[in-house]
């Protein structure tokens, strides 16, 4: 039983570290600000989530676990606010995203035209 718990917590922490490294690598590799935000979102969701869950499993049922879960909830609720503010500030400042396709003009309409036969998504 203890061995199972140990293995579970270590694999969670290892996976969290892996996703943190991947997110930081994406932060350096991606071509412009908007795509870099997507890379950082991997750190702030899976990286922090898995690392803190692993630590919480290590701590067992205690105040430390409660604090870890609260810290996780704090990051999950504040991170989208910060990222949205950053993306909006970029748009306002006139930083043009490098786009493969701009669907802003038709958006919703384009989906209706394509209908059910969408080969690209699933």
């Amino acid at each position: 039983m203890t061995l199972v718990v140990e293995i579970a917590s270590w694999s969670l922490i290892l996976l969290g570290s892996f996703f943190t490294l991947v997110g930081a690598l994406g932060l350096v590799r991606m071509p412009d600000v908007y795509t870099r935000m997507h890379a950082v979102s991997v750190i702030d969701t899976l990286g922090i989530g898995m690392t803190f869950l692993g630590l919480a499993v290590q701590a067992g049922f205690s105040l430390v676990t409660l604090k870890l879960l609260f810290l996780m909830a704090l990051v999950f609720f504040t991170w989208p606010v910060v990222t949205h503010a950053l993306a909006q500030a970029c748009l306002h400042a006139g930083v043009q995203p490098q786009l493969a396709e701009d669907r802003r003009e038709f958006g919703r309409h384009a989906t209706d035209v394509q209908g059910e036969g969408r080969p690209s998504s699933n």
Binding site: Y34, M37, H38, S41, V42, T45, L46, F76, F77, W79, P80, V81, T83, H84, A87, Q88, C90, L91
Partner: peptide, 15 residues
């Protein structure tokens, strides 16, 4: 809006 941003790969850039 927050769910869109929280899902990696999509970001709400304006409301």
């Amino acid at each position: 809006a927050n769910s869109i941003t929280l899902t990696p790969g999509t970001i709400t850039a304006g409301v």
